[in-house]
Design a protein around this nucleic acid. Sequence first.
RNA 1: CGGGGCGUAGCGCAGUUUGGUAGCGCAUCGGUUUUGGGAACCGAGGGCCGCUGGUUCGAGUCCAGUCGCCCCGACCA
Length: 578
Amino acid sequence: MLQSHIYIPTLKETPADAEVISHKLLLRSGMIRKVTSGIYTYLPLGLRALEKISRIVREEMNAAGAQEILMPMVQPGDLWQESGRWEHYGKELLRFKDRHDRHYCLGPTHEEVVTALVRDEIRSYRQLPLNLYQIQTKFRDEIRPRFGLMRGREFIMKDAYSFDRDEAGADASYQAMYDAYTRIFTRLGVRFRAVAADTGSIGGSFSHEFMVLAETGEDTLAVCRRCAYAANVEKAEVRLPAPTAPQAAGAPVAAVSTPGMRTVEEVAGYVGVAPHQVLKTVLVDADGSLVAVLVRGDREVNLVKVKNHLGATVVDLAVPEAVERATGAPLGFAGPVGLRGVPIYADQELMHGTDYVCGANVADTHLQHVDLLRDVALTGVADLRSITADDPCPACGGGVDLVRGIEVGHVFKLGTKYSEALHATFLDETGRERPLIMGCYGIGVSRVLAACIEQHHDAAGMILPPAVAPFEVHILPVSVREQASLEMAEALHDALNQEGIDTLLDDRDERPGVKFAEADLLGAPMQVIVGSKGLARGVVEVKDRRTGERRELPAETANAAFLAWRAEVLEGWCASLR
RNA sequence: CGGGGCGUAGCGCAGUUUGGUAGCGCAUCGGUUUUGGGAACCGAGGGCCGCUGGUUCGAGUCCAGUCGCCCCGACCA
């Protein structure tokens, strides 16, 4: 491709509303432009990158036995009424009416549509298993879109749905997708981890998230330093050492005046105890009722664990008014002693200690010498806090690291939730009607592009993995006015394209500095610089964008020399990801 | 939805305090010189100052309303 024939509107300056590096670079490199909040146009270069990603996804999905279809973005409200999600999905689901006053929505996901399709088509176990997927635009009316392609309202997603006759088949389908995802993200050239994840509101027995490792990720992962264990911190269990012998209750409970001391740090410092001797009392709203959760002062309540333990649908921090009503005290002075009418759950770790400090449910007052067994009417004890870097690995007991990740894929075992709601059944060998067992599997295609950039960039611009880069090779004739340079560049360009290597030739009459700067910004993994200085010595220069390493190749045998060097660069990429 | 902020040329911004001819840099167009890391000079074009209403002789600037956008929290690929 000649650069003079492709529209790449680069920006020297970063648009003011871009916050994260991928958003800045996507705009600066002329890959995307914003249309409105959370909605973008993909320009030629951005679209090429998306197509590269999509192609790999397609190849691996097809290889795993899935079949591509394309479902509509506009979906009838009726189907969502049937599944029950019309009421439960919330405002993320963008709803509207047509001229006949019929209800519709923009598809945020396609369980309803695909299940309705399959129920009308699949009659017999002989037609199973079936796995259907699509690569399609989704719309979720996010409360706050941000970070460019990382969290748009409209985004491109690959979503697949498997249908099986039994649990064993569903497990095999799940595993096939898990394996396909592993191959996809490996081929794409990102460092990633598959982590155990909470199934969330979708339900089902288990799920894994595929996380691109990057500091700017919105999720935190607990990764074992020794074994293969990796989990989202939402999910990661806390495994405690064996409990120490029950401790004798100490001194009787005593009130202590703590004027204006609301936070754990303030209280601990004022009373003169360590933060872990303070009881953090968090009131949550679980499906409309208040619940008190106790954790050590230096720990964090894990709302996902609370939700799962309670079997609730929605768990959130209680609003301040509710807390004040329940405790009769201002925020910051809640405590479990004498707290009436609210179930009280303690994190398991608290049972290892005694002599705690907690709020007294009275303004400016805390209690000392509290013993949970003696002084508190506990409803239950469970693992309710988030794992920390000091905790042992739940699987092997080794140490864990907490790292940040960007969720780019998620595989779920759905079970029969949708097939039962929508009556998608089949007849088994005995002629019995049974619900299909489903799985669903998503990859955020446009988010993968952003995640690639978050993981691979430097001060000059993007450093795209060869599989994702719109062009793998960028050829830069130092001056197109030097006939010899231009001819050399064109010859190499044509030869590489013949080899099936996507190559961009900067044939513009620009100054060398402009070309070098833009090439680094656009981030093709390999650059070729052809100039009169080099040609005079019989060489062309190549540059590995990832390492910055430059090398001179003999101009006479440039094609073969380039291919050999390219193999080294590709190997370097693979090695860097291991 | 709550909290904070911003809307002035394609992009980045100044001007708003104290009302009085709408500016700067980059980009764009023409020209000359330049050509191995985002060139220099000369010249030119480009503005419903987000929108609506109000105050005023006069509003980018003051007042009211409204729309859009961004950042921080709860959602998710």
